[in-house]
Simulated assay, not measured.
Amino acid sequence: MDYAELTGSIAPVAYGLATIGPAIGVGIVVGKTVESVARQPELQGRLTGLMFLGIAFTEALAFIAIAVAFIPFPS
């Protein structure tokens, strides 16, 4: 039985998989903020600021994933 030899980089696959977590995180942060504003509209300004802070921290994971995906590993 012959096996195909794979060559190349799997960095794009790693980046694609690594962005799933931050995408889910941003969705949860925004969804919970919308729920909170619906319950207490007078806190919209404070909650929006906290939401953007949470999004920034969550998106930092995606940027780290970009960097890690392109680090060459010795073979």
Rank of each mutant, 00 (worst) to 15 (best):
F52E: 06
P12L: 11
A60Y: 01
P72S: 14
L53T: 06
I64Q: 02
G54M: 02
L43T: 10
P22Q: 05
V30P: 08
Q40T: 10
L53E: 01
T19L: 03
A23V: 05
G21N: 09
V29T: 11
I64D: 02
E59N: 02
G31W: 02
E42M: 09
V29C: 12
V37G: 05
I64P: 03
V34D: 00
E35K: 00
S75T: 09
A14D: 12
I28G: 05
A62T: 09
S9G: 13
L50A: 09
T7Y: 08
P41G: 04
R46W: 03
G49L: 11
A65T: 04
G16N: 07
T48V: 11
V30N: 01
I10L: 14
A67G: 13
A56F: 06
A69G: 14
A65V: 03
I71N: 12
P72I: 12
G49Y: 00
I55A: 13
A11Y: 00
S9I: 06
I24E: 04
I66L: 15
I20V: 12
L17P: 07
L17K: 13
V26A: 01
G54V: 02
S9V: 06
I55F: 13
I66N: 06
P12G: 12
I64V: 13
V30W: 02
F70M: 07
D2P: 15
I10Q: 06
L50S: 11
F70E: 00
G54A: 05
K32D: 08
A11M: 05
V37L: 02
I71V: 15
A69W: 07
G45H: 01
L47M: 07
F57Q: 00
A65P: 04
A60H: 05
M1F: 08
E35A: 05
P72E: 13
L6R: 08
F52C: 09
V68R: 08
E35W: 02
T7G: 10
G8W: 01
K32E: 11
I71M: 15
G49E: 11
P72L: 11
E35T: 01
P22G: 09
A62R: 05
M51A: 13
D2C: 12
V68L: 13
P41S: 03
A18Y: 01
G45Y: 03
D2G: 14
E35L: 00
A56W: 04
V13K: 05
L50Q: 11
T58G: 07
A62H: 07
P74F: 15
E42Q: 14
F70P: 02
I64T: 07
Q44E: 13
L53I: 11
Y3W: 14
F52P: 11
G49M: 08
L50G: 15
A14K: 09
T48E: 09
G45D: 03
Q40K: 03
A67V: 13
F73C: 13
R46V: 13
I55D: 08
A65G: 14
P74S: 15
G54W: 01
M51G: 07
A14H: 09
L50T: 09
